[in-house]
Structure formats: C-alpha cells, structure tokens
Design a protein around this nucleic acid. Structure first.
Lengths: 185, 185
DNA sequence: GGAATCATGTAAGTAGTTACATGATTGA
DNA sequence: TCAATCATGTAACTACTTACATGATTCC
C-alpha cells in the first residue's frame, strides 16, 4: 500500500472539465474537493510542468510575443492525458490507508489523564463535527440548485453525502462516548 | 494546521503502561492502535534514541558486560517523559487534517467513465467496509473479556467503537450510493 | 495611490516509508 | 538444520508543506 503521487490525476481531472491555469485549478480544488483532497502550490506547479513534458497536457497560451512572465498559462488536456485519466479512474483502489487520528490516540491513553480532560476532547470534536455537518447540508442544497442539469451532479453529491454521513456518525459516536464515560466508575 | 511528529507521544504512551523494547512497541502498536495509527521502524528507532537524549525515556538494560549488540534494549519512561505525555494528552487538538480519499476523488470525476465502473468501486468499498466492521465487532467482544478489569478498557473500547461506527456509516453510504447511481438518468 | 487578488514559481525543510543489513534465539 | 521470529538500526527516497520571491491587474 505504498503512497503514490496523485496530484497528476487531480490536475488531469480538473482539466478534463475545462481549460484552466494553475491558479484556477487551485481555486477549483478549494471549491469542490477540498473536503477530501488538498494540493499545495509546491506540488501543483511543478506537476503542471511535468505533465506538459509527458504530453498529458499542453499550454495553449504561449503568447511568445508579450511574455510579461506573470500572464496566466492556460492548460488543456491532451488525448493521451484524457486516456491516462480514464485508465486511472477505472483502475481499482489498492487498499485503504490508515488515517492517523490524533483524537483516538489521545483517548487510547486516556487513563493517564482525568476523565474530564478526555470528555473535553470529545465535546470539542462534537462541536466541530456539528459545524461540518451543517456546512455539508448547505453545500448539498446549493449544489442541487446551481448544477441542476450538470451530468456530474450525482457524482459530486456522492462525495458530499459521504462527508455528511461521516460527520453524522462522528456526532453520534461523540454523544454515545460522552454518556459512556460519564457513567464509567 | 501544520503536521508535527507524534511518534514521540506514541512511544511515551506505550511506555507509560510498561517497560518495553523497540520491537515490543512496534508489536504493541500493531495489536492496539493500528486501526488509526501506524509507525514504521524508520521512524520508531531514531525517535527512541532521540527521546533518550531528551531524558524523556531511559534505557534500563545497558548490560555493558555481554553487549552482543542485538540484545533487546528495554526502555522506561522518566518522570519528565510522563509529564510531557500528560501535557500533550491534555492539550487540545488543533484542527482536523483533511484525509485524502482516493475513492471520492475517483467518484468526483466519475462522469468521465462508465456508471458501471463507478459502481464497481463502491461495491468494492462496501465489501471492504463490511469485513472491517466484522473485525471491529470481534475485537470489541474479545477485548471486553480479556481486559475486564483493566482501567483503560473504556478508553480502548471508545477507539474501537469509533471504527465500528465509521465503517457502519460507510456501508450505509455505499448502499445508498449504489441505489442512487442505478436510478440516475 | 494602494489594497486585494491574480498568478507563477522555488528553496528549504519535515515526515514518513521502503528496503536493506545484520545477527541472535527459538523451536519444529 | 533451517525457518520463523526476535531485535536493532540506517540509507535512500518520496511526498508534501511552508515560506518566500516576484510581479501584474483590478478596482476603490
């Protein structure tokens, strides 16, 4: 289950929808997949250059004339790139990585500190999960309106509902855990 | 929300229960927190040395006489180490990192491939989540018996129930998503 | 004029894994 | 005797983030 760089596929995926510059891709990530994926500039820009070298994308705005250097570079996905993207999208997922969970780590050693301190961590998480839950609800509502006829809508909703469900489960776990700890000897 | 190295606290936490060598710690991680935490040898051993230098743990088996080099080095947590551990356990959790989710990334771009291929990913995940769910159930059952009077039991159960809940939520999301996609246009 | 935003990129560093090297001990 | 497990550690590498540098454009 070794980690491989997927920045490549994020870029290809984003460019499969429309031509964009690096900055646009960065914004698009923020506005769509940020709940389960992030990319820093330090990964994004070098990968863009790499994908051009590999012929998976190309730059369609090399206005060689007025090259004032800080003009946006608009990228377009190539046929080869689209093929590579689809191949990856279809390929099955090899194992699910274990996510490190600081809350659970602290609770696992919970007997070393006061019950009250442990409860505080859980209450804090419950608060967070509740806020997140509401954000997901709002996003789902908005997306259904703003992208009514977008063929990608069902897929985008799937990802939001995953988050909604996960937060809901977390809230329930918090409630149950608070009760359980308060009762415990 | 910058990433900081928590290997330190895993080691301190494990040693707060009993004296152990590096290998034992590695095994203990496998048998207890592997569901939400992992450490590789490449992190573990250098960190052990570092913690000794920082006086947070000490090596209690420097049998300087018969040093055949591959004899286990038994470590014990110091007062300073225990204090540092407790301080961390009580400190509040700064932000929850976004976990990268390959399944959601593939589904987000799902419109680029066939509905069937997307469904396959979800079915596969459902299978995995179901297996995991059963493992959690078994672990919880066993732990309740094997650690009946252990004061840490409620905390350990909390972490297992988190996993159980999370997998259950995932299974439900899979079922719902499969239905939703099959109906879609 | 100046702040915010648009836009690209790099350098330095951290965290982390993998793969290897080494050798002792246990038990079938 | 040979495989498995116990046991420690390092070197090389990858992924990734942060912080910085730079400058254009927009719009109040």
């Amino acid at each position: 289950m070794k980690k491989i760089n997927k920045t490549k596929y994020v870029i290809l995926g984003m460019l499969s929808a429309q031509e964009m510059c690096g900055y646009d891709i960065s914004k698009a990530i923020q506005n769509s997949i940020a709940n389960f994926w992030s990319e820093s500039n330090g990964q994004l820009y070098p990968t863009l250059s790499k994908l051009v070298r590999e012929d998976l994308i190309l730059c369609v705005s090399e206005n060689a004339t007025n090259s004032t250097s800080k003009t946006p570079k608009i990228y377009r996905i190539t046929k080869k790139g689209l093929h590579e993207l689809k191949k990856w999208l279809e390929s099955s997922i090899e194992g699910v990585p274990t996510f490190r969970n600081e809350l659970l780590l602290k609770l696992f050693f919970g007997n070393q500190i006061s019950k009250k301190a442990c409860l505080q961590h859980i209450v804090q998480r419950k608060q967070w999960a509740t806020e997140q839950y509401q954000k997901y609800e709002a996003k789902i509502k908005n997306l259904k309106i703003s992208n009514k006829n977008n063929p990608s809508l069902p897929y985008w909703l799937l990802t939001l509902e995953y988050g909604l469900n996960a937060r809901k489960a977390e809230i329930n776990w918090c409630i149950k855990s608070i009760e359980l700890l308060e009762q415990a000897n």
